[in-house]
Design a protein around this nucleic acid. Structure first.
Lengths: 165, 165
DNA sequence: CCCATATCGTTCAACAGTGAACGATATGGA
DNA sequence: TCCATATCGTTCACTGTTGAACGATATGGG
């Protein structure tokens, strides 16, 4: 056992919301880490999230729509789609009605790849459902939704105008 | 009004836990965006998080300890600390007892910079406390903590050994 | 006293995401 | 009709993080 870390004590105790944000950040981190372990060679977490998005909401969206939904920039979406298309997991089609737009469709190979990954993660998702009930998740969902909406509105606001002088 | 997006319908409805993870990812995204708007020129979200960490838990940790606590690699911590030191917000001292280690201390300037940012964000934190009660945050904290612990344990596990053969 | 092992902090190449350009296309009011 | 404005998808320079090195230091068993 080593000497305990010398350290100045914290000045105050955490506000409840600070603790929530900290836990949320950690959950995000560990969830990503857990998923990444199951992705095949060359597939990024963002790639997998894109495929999952199609599984959840269907496909046929434009890249700009995907960017807004997935909270990424259009540039990131372009990059992700190009790689997914190279892998054969999506096709990107021109939109005849509006020639600025494109439409993204998941391929059969994409469906299969997505399914294979989820199957590979099955033990973990089952452990999750073993440790927590659906009702526990449902119990916190309204609050998380409200918090997300609140932050999405507030995050668009800039810094205050340096007070008045 | 444009034509509604042509899109294949989703096959199934979201599992409760999927929705929770989605909301958590969005909360993380918007929270980061909201904070970044208030950071001074040259300060990164990671820099600010480091300063906040010292405010919460005190300073004097080693870089390796900071890496473990903040869920970043040692390389990232080195980078962040070097920049914070250039800004004059932290000092990195040698540990006499263990010459492999260093100890990080926040400076008065770091305290002031951190305080100034928090003051700048005051309107937003007040809006947060206006929209949600402490009890609401406290109500979800145990579940989030348990979920974080669960994921931290499960994320260390690798992929299954490709079944048997 | 060694020496194998572990941890320390740093460096570096690779890579993903951002944000601001850009040309192309749509849209709607003068 | 024409033109200002907006959105489309792409590109590119920049930046932050990762993961694997590396040398230096500490530790503990033989």
């Amino acid at each position: 056992m080593t000497t305990p870390t010398p350290r100045n004590p914290p000045a105050v105790q955490d506000q409840p919301y600070v603790e929530v944000f900290t836990e949320i950040g950690a959950i995000e981190h560990y969830l990503r880490a857990a998923v990444i372990k199951h992705l095949p060679e060359g597939m990024t977490h963002a790639h997998f999230e894109m495929l999952q998005w199609f599984m959840r909401y269907g496909d046929g969206q434009t890249p700009a729509e995907l960017a807004r939904m997935m909270l990424l920039t259009k540039g990131a979406i372009t990059n992700i789609l190009q790689k997914l298309e190279k892998m054969g997991f999506v096709v990107v089609l021109a939109d005849c009605a509006d020639r600025r737009k494109k439409r993204v469709k998941i391929t059969r190979a994409g469906l299969e790849a997505s399914g294979a990954i989820m199957k590979d993660m099955k033990a973990k998702t089952e452990a999750l459902r073993d440790g927590f009930t659906d009702d526990e998740f449902r119990a916190v969902t309204p609050f998380l939704k409200a918090l997300r909406v609140f932050l999405s509105e507030i995050s668009e606001l800039g810094a205050p105008a340096a007070a008045h002088r």
